[in-house]
Design a binder for these strands. Structure first.
Lengths: 387, 387
DNA sequence: GTGAAAGCGCTAACAT
DNA sequence: ATGTTAGCGCTTTCAC
């Protein structure tokens, strides 16, 4: 098991040539007499030769690796981005190192530093927290680095970037609700001081302003967990009630996970989506299609983000000049949003009672208000959460 | 930008010592006079020295890296497993290479071969397709390798394994349904000839047999897409109708994604879960808690799988002897399963019409059969899919 | 076309 | 306690 791997010298000895000849033969270098080349390759195969990439790298100063920093490996959003990264990395013959930052600045720096020691050819960082002040902490910018959806205001211009336009995304989300006739629209965000939360909120505000709609500070709820966004679903769940009492008829959520949290909270409160409330998410992760109702959201082109960023890195490695990329998000309409008129029509009568359910629960135990024997629809799933 | 990195020789020159002294000082080696050590470390810091891990590896024959092969980077199940892997890898100072196999044997081999060239210290393979016959294709088993949930019957005994007991999982799932009073239970599986599908099916059969319940070949539906499981959700969606017509009252699905597909199919067919049909998944991915109704499932301890496998690899690297590990899955009861009595009670009357909805749709366009003006519950979400 | 020799940046005997 | 020397396994001039 601990047997030493065979090296080109071993092959050379066996073939009766010098190791440099073997080196050339193995890589189809220039004009080696074709027959010795064949011979050497055959011997190599017989000896189960596996080239030592470490030794190659030391010599060529190229590792054919890229380092990727993600927020969390199990983050469904970045998982898809990484999928895109790996696709083009693989076709270019590059392997990828994956490390999680958990949105922590120190961990991000540590990961990048580690990549530097390992002499990766390039680095991709998602959700970066690096700004100009702390750039020097990671030494010289020795390695081509591209930032994906960077979260700082002033990223050093030595880095390149691929970004989705959060501001536009926020506007599109809110414009969608406005088109549906909503006039009281809320924003449910996360409090980790990230740039994307700020920009989506700005998009929200701008859309309201441009439509001549009122703004109300009560309509904006930002969770106060500063740095640790453990679980966006829980955040959404916890924050929803605050917004409900303000009378909003539609809510734009920071992302899909937050929106799903809001959705689940509504189910518990017997508030119907979209009949009583319209919900818009952000990201368009797979989950959107699986919840009930399916989630209207602002789609980020995740695979494309990953592919473009990796392609940009490849260009950088070839010393091509590259331009920062800003991709446009777009709305994917599903079933969590509906026209306000329809919504209000359906919500006439008892609706207010449901809407304020968190404080005035009609059925505290979540039971259906209609006696089973009187239910005219015994065969359909009762929308009241009977757990 | 292309400036050559500083090496220990550069530091040595500046400090007026030999490069080996620097080497020792930088790694707190044995008894270097503390003051020159401090001095050297200071200089190194000033010069922004970044150790070259490649050169270190060439010398020490240790790369401090592990290679991980996953089915797909965006697979929510293995994402969590990898999360566990990375956690313990990081604390051990190891970096992880991540590559996708897409459940393809050739790609798996290619990934492992690549890891061999890169001289990773250990390899972790999920969903492996390697068996004894083709082992030799990857040369000597030079590197400690542990297989996670291997999918072949006869894995070479030179590999170590961490596995979740699929057979037990299948039994538990079906026993859960039996305890709820179900007697006609189906299995919805995937046709990629994987060992886990086979074992879960065997567990299903055994549970039925042990309970003295009837078995019916019509109750078992396996998708016929041989190798390419593009999307398990679509598989579930597509296969569900076949099972429905057989009169089963509960279905055990190969995994959660398949179950979610089944769930969505039921929504379209106006079949209520769990009132008309109970559904059990497998894996317990996060999604289970977000769909409506939430999904009863057989939980695989994903983080623990990852952590144990990585720990096993660590032990192997220290030449400790290790034992293959079989972890036990367990049922997590949620809202997609319910007692058959209750189910049938609720399904009395018109239920059959809904149950066979795929062939005898009462409302072909998915509209609620009750005229809006007569609906006694205008404020609740209509369970009929009005899209 | 092929061999000899240097060197990539480091660690680890072996001297001193 | 520190310097000298020899590799780790490869690529790449530079001769021939």
């Amino acid at each position: 098991m601990k047997k030493r791997k065979v090296s080109i010298e071993d092959i050379a000895r066996r073939a009766g040539v010098s190791h440099s000849t073997v080196s050339r033969a193995l890589r189809d270098n220039s004009l080696i007499s074709p027959k010795v080349r064949e011979e050497i390759q055959k011997i190599a195969r017989e000896m189960n030769y596996v080239p030592n990439a470490i030794a190659q790298s030391l010599q060529t100063q190229r590792t054919n690796t890229v380092g990727v920093v993600v927020t969390s490996i199990a983050d469904p959003f970045y998982a898809e981005v990484v999928e895109g990264i790996e696709q083009v990395a693989r076709t270019a013959g590059l392997s990828v190192f994956l490390t999680a930052s958990h949105r922590d600045f120190e961990q991000e720096i540590a990961a990048i530093d580690n990549f530097h020691r390992r002499r990766v050819d390039g680095i991709l960082v998602t959700d970066s927290r690096i700004n100009k002040k702390n750039t020097n902490k990671i030494g010289e910018i020795a390695v081509p680095t591209v930032l994906i959806n960077s979260q700082t205001e002033d990223q050093p211009e030595t880095f390149h970037t691929v970004t989705v336009d959060d501001f536009l995304g926020g506007r599109l989300a809110v414009e969608h609700l406005i088109e549906l006739g909503h006039r009281a629209i809320g924003y449910l965000g996360v409090g980790d001081r990230s740039q994307s939360n700020y920009l989506r909120l700005e998009g929200y505000r701008t859309a309201l302003r441009e439509a001549g709609l009122p703004e109300n500070s009560d309509w904006v709820a930002i969770s106060d967990e500063e740095n640790t966004r453990i679980n966006d679903v829980d955040t959404g769940k916890k924050m929803l009630p605050k917004l409900l009492t303000t009378g909003v008829t539609g809510i734009f959520c920071y992302n899909d996970m937050v929106a799903v949290g809001a959705l689940l909270a509504c189910q518990e409160l017997n508030i119907l989506i979209p009949q009583n409330l319209s919900l818009v998410g952000f990201d368009d992760i797979a989950l959107c299609r699986y919840v009930t109702p399916s989630l209207t959201t602002v789609c980020q082109p995740k695979l494309e983000i990953g592919r473009s960023a990796m392609q940009m890195l490849l260009d950088l490695l070839e010393e091509k000049s590259v331009e920062n990329l800003v991709l446009s998000p777009f709305v994917v309409k599903r079933n969590s949003t509906t026209a306000f008129e329809q919504q209000s029509a359906g919500a006439e009568g008892h609706s207010r009672e449901f809407l304020t359910a968190n404080s005035v629960l009609i059925m505290p135990d979540g039971q259906c208000p209609i006696p089973p024997t009187q239910c005219p629809m015994p065969n359909v799933q009762c929308p009241f959460s009977i757990t």
